[in-house]
Design a protein around this nucleic acid. Structure first.
Lengths: 210, 210
DNA sequence: TAATTAAATGAACGTTCGTTTAATTATGTG
DNA sequence: CACATAATTAAACGAACGTTCATTTAATTA
């Protein structure tokens, strides 16, 4: 096997992905050498080329794979017909997923510019598909009078930025639990779109984690 | 002059800073070579070392300088005693400043990890001083009953992430003007902390840009 | 005008980079 | 067990990296 991302799922393939993810997230794509990745796997640099044609393919694989899994998980999330509940469910999903996959999320934002044009476009399309989920919830909710927002696209970008920002400061073992953080963000997002009364769903979950 | 950041304010010094800012923002610190920076200035790579001792000092200078100017501008912004107005003024300042200095803001977030420990700490201290401004507004406002927030530190980080996120999508000449974007974000932030009625200040500015 | 200093050049330094190649080892199938 | 194939190693490639340095050029001061 050589010159292509083909040995999917084999032991070394997965270990190379994992090592690259770890190192890219901590030091950045451009600062990490193939030799460093190989050393972390316990192998020589040349061995990586049996699983990935080059360094760029390794980055591209990590990013597109992450975006695909994000979308897949997002489509499998619980969703209500009520815009209000749908938004809350999206927020909970996004916060949880982005805390669980901190490294993947981080490089998906930081290393976009190190993707060659074709790979960049592929990731960009996937990202836009994800952002559209929230934008549609907001648009439908605004149309139904459930939300008080000036502009659904901007509101969507603002909310995603707010939520994803949790990754820049959250660390396990800190002052707040994941559940507590989730509640804080849910409340802020709901309020930001003009929803002030706790919903049944919101109220029940706040009791649960009180 | 050599081996130190000493030729501050000279022509080439400023041009090197500007070229580095431009290139770091677009391609990332690690991906930009001293030769590329020099070429953009119209000079040979060695000439840069008459103004900066090394590449790291160039990055560090850009980041600390940016943070200092941000804090200086922040301290010069209009500020009300009323938490509600103070928050609105902070939001307007932050949005404007971060749209005006897109490149500086971008590298201040993206290239932190490429700073050596000592330089990193310096920038981090400045960043925390800035974040504290918003946190104090939120804390005081919450104490006075002006805001409906669960946790001032988290709310502060969430709001800053939301506002700074404008840099990832805003481009001049787009669908919305800077003023319109400012209004949208002001409204979202005020609502996110539980403020729903347009204030006098908010109302007046919305009229102005209607 | 002469002396001094600053700035820039152009070549070179040692090192590291991503990647390739030939030889060797491991693996799995008849 | 033999044999084919896949995986890995160790060495090497040319290119590019940050940085240094002797020297030249330009500007300033004496």
């Amino acid at each position: 096997m050589a010159r292509t991302v083909g040995s999917v799922g084999t032991k070394t393939f997965d270990e190379v992905r994992k090592a690259a993810l770890y190192l890219f997230a901590r030091h950045g794509y451009a600062s990490v050498s193939m030799r460093q990745i190989a050393a972390r796997v316990g192998v020589q640099a040349g061995a990586i080329y049996n699983h990935f044609p080059n360094k760029q393919a390794l980055l591209s694989d990590l990013l597109t794979q992450h975006m695909r899994e994000l979308i897949e998980a997002c489509e499998a999330r619980p969703t209500s017909k009520l815009p209000l509940n749908a938004l809350e469910q999206f927020v909970r999903f996004h916060i949880r997923y982005h805390i669980d996959r901190a490294d993947e999320v981080f490089i998906a934002y930081m290393e976009l510019r190190n993707l060659e044009p074709e790979n960049f476009r592929e990731v960009q399309v996937l990202r836009q598909r994800y952002e559209r989920v929230l934008r549609d919830i907001l648009r439908d909710g605004a149309k139904a009078g459930a939300f008080e927002i000036s502009d659904a696209p901007v509101a969507g970008m603002a909310i995603i930025a707010m939520l994803t920002g949790v990754n820049t400061w959250f660390r396990y073992g800190g002052r707040l639990s994941v559940s507590q953080i989730e509640e804080i963000y849910v409340k802020m997002v709901m309020q930001s779109v003009g929803v002030f009364e706790p919903t049944a769903l919101l109220g029940a979950l706040m009791e649960e984690n009180a």
